[in-house]
Structures are given as C-alpha cells and as structure tokens.
Design a protein around this nucleic acid. Sequence first.
DNA 1: ACAGGCATGTAAATAGTTACATGATTCG
DNA 2: CGAATCATGTAACTATTTACATGCCTGT
Lengths: 184, 184
Amino acid sequence: MEQLSTTAYVILGFVRKGPKSGYEVKALVDESTRFFWAASYGQIYPELKRLSATGLIVGSDSPTGSRKRTVYEITADGVEELQSWLRQRPETFEVRDEGLLKLFFADALPREEALATLREMRARRSAAHEQLQAIKDLKLKGEIEDPFPLIVLESGLEFTKWFVDWCERTEARILDSALEERSS
Amino acid sequence: MEQLSTTAYVILGFVRKGPKSGYEVKALVDESTRFFWAASYGQIYPELKRLSATGLIVGSDSPTGSRKRTVYEITADGVEELQSWLRQRPETFEVRDEGLLKLFFADALPREEALATLREMRARRSAAHEQLQAIKDLKLKGEIEDPFPLIVLESGLEFTKWFVDWCERTEARILDSALEERSS
DNA sequence: ACAGGCATGTAAATAGTTACATGATTCG
DNA sequence: CGAATCATGTAACTATTTACATGCCTGT
C-alpha cells in the first residue's frame, strides 16, 4: 500500500475527533490548520474517497432534510495509521513569502519604495494576528479538553506578533539609513 | 503577454546583480532565498529559456575550457519588469509545517510522545539557526553594498531564535501539565 | 585514477489551486 | 424572496519535485 499524502492525515486527524462531512473538514481546516497546512476541496473530496476505499474511514449517509450529505468516521485502522504518522519525525517545513522575496531584491528600487513592501507585510501580519486572536477568543468560550490546537494557535499569535514587531524595527532602520545617505 | 511566475522574478533579481549561469542561480537560491522561496533546476532552466525568449534576459556562451556554459544578463526590459513586480504589493504568504500539524493532532498520542515532535522541531529550527549564522558570518567577511539580503537574513535568524525558544517553553508547559495530570 | 563540483537539461510524477456546476436549506 | 451557507464534486491548469542522463574540469 502506497503511502498517504499529508492532507490525508489532516483529514484523519479531524475525523478522529468525531464524524465529519467533507464540507465540515474544509471549514475546520480554514479556521485552524490552513495557517500551516492548507487544503482545498479539490484535495479533500478525492482524499475522502481514497481513505474510504482503504478502510481508514467509513462514510454513511446523513442527509439534512433532502439535502444529501455523507459523514465519515475513523476506523481502528485509521487511528493506528494516524498514530504511526504522528510518531514519525516531521519532515516538511516550507515557507513561501513573496514579501521577504521582494525585500530581498529591494535594492532594485529607491529606498522609499522598498519601505512600501515592508509596510504591506506589516499590515498583513497584523491582520493575521487579529484573526488569530478572534479565533482564540471564540475557542476560549467553549471548554477545551484537547490542549494542542490552542498551543499551536498561540504559536501563531506569538509568531505574528514577532513578525509585526520585526517589520516595525526594520522600517525604522531603513528610514534611518535613507536619512544617513542623504546627509553624507 | 502572460504574466511571469514568481520564480522568474527570483531569476531576474539575481541576474540583475551580474551575469549568471543557471547553475550559479541555483547555488544562490540555495544559500539565500530558499528559506522563503525555493526553486529547483526543473524550474530554473526552463524559466531561463522563457525569459530569454521574451527578451528580459540575454544569454551568451561563456565556456570554462571546453565545458559549455551559458551566462545570462538582464536587459533594460528585464529591469523594468523586475521593478514593476517589486512595486506591486506582495500576495503569497504560505507556510507548510508538518511539525505544527503533528503537534496540532498530538492529542491522539500519549503526552510523552507528543513531546518528541516538539523536540524534533526544536532541533531542526536550531540547526537552521546555526546554518543562517554561518551564512551571515561568511557574508560579513566580504563588503556589502546591498543591505537587503542581510536584512532578510537577520529576519531568519530572529525567527529561528524565536521558534527554538517557543519550542523550549512549550516543552516545559507540556511536561508540567503531564505531571499535574498524574498527581490529580 | 577518482571524487567532487561544475554545468545543462528533461520526463514523469505529484501536489495543489481555481473555476465551475449543481442544488438544497436557512435566515432575515 | 434573495442572500448566505450547506453540500459535493470535477476538469483544467499551474507549480514543483524527483530522478535521471550526460559529460567536463579540478584537486588529491
């Protein structure tokens, strides 16, 4: 049996917490893992079928009125597969940040224009921070048995805070060096 | 004319600094942008041909002995294209971190095993930090006219430092809560 | 002589996004 | 009634990695 995609484990992880439709999995991804592991419908629905075919999850019809709906539950095999994945050391760590890339090549523009990139980066990370804070506030209203999603959420809050702060300090630095240049 | 891939701008950015072979571009990517924008030979060589075909760079033969070699230089059009891209607000910001994902779902394992993931994450980020420090030390030996690559490198150093620190604090937190559980 | 680095490239596979199609239900 | 949300899915496209092939040059 060929090995599963990481997105398959995202599904197993959520479905383990209780029966879920594809739509619900997507919604959960969008408010949590997407900050470090995104997934689209184009991945989720085919993956649900594959996982179902290999017996790691089982689907059952669970319509809302006459709107058809399939919810999936994890099997014993599915739990084992999830755990065995969790026990392996993490491999993938990738960042794709167009902002850092533009800053890296910003020498090709006048200093003032380089600052615009940095300001935009700060605004984006700041918005992300607020988004995460809103998600956290919401979470804290319910009770929490599983501490890990919150732990990961808090890493996001710290990270975005650090990033915004770094942008501010770097903006100031570039502004200073631009002044220096003109006075020399 | 259809728009260029981000990887095309990586090439334009490096080639703007002076004539480069595909091999040299790849080597530069691997020691700098790959931390926030990776690129493989499978992207670089075809992209060099495309950029050459659209007149944004020009290639010329520049063999080393009888080993054939093509170096590319940026054209005026290329510089303009690069600048116009730099002036647009950055879009892509993506992270794919299997470690955070495993931590997110770590409730499916005994607490002690969840810690293993965190320890591995810390080791990886710590190694990355040292790698970046080594690159910085090397850079500081030469003289620097363009301050931006160093600025971006320093963001990497701060980020990895923060990440290692966060891992340590989180390890301690989980260890504490595991003790609590047993004593209650 | 051999290893390692320089140098160029491509084919195949995998991953992932985007856009579209379809239709039901719920809430204001 | 209309908008938003629930719900499922696929086709086409784009991006990207991996693995392979080829061969020269330099230093030990």
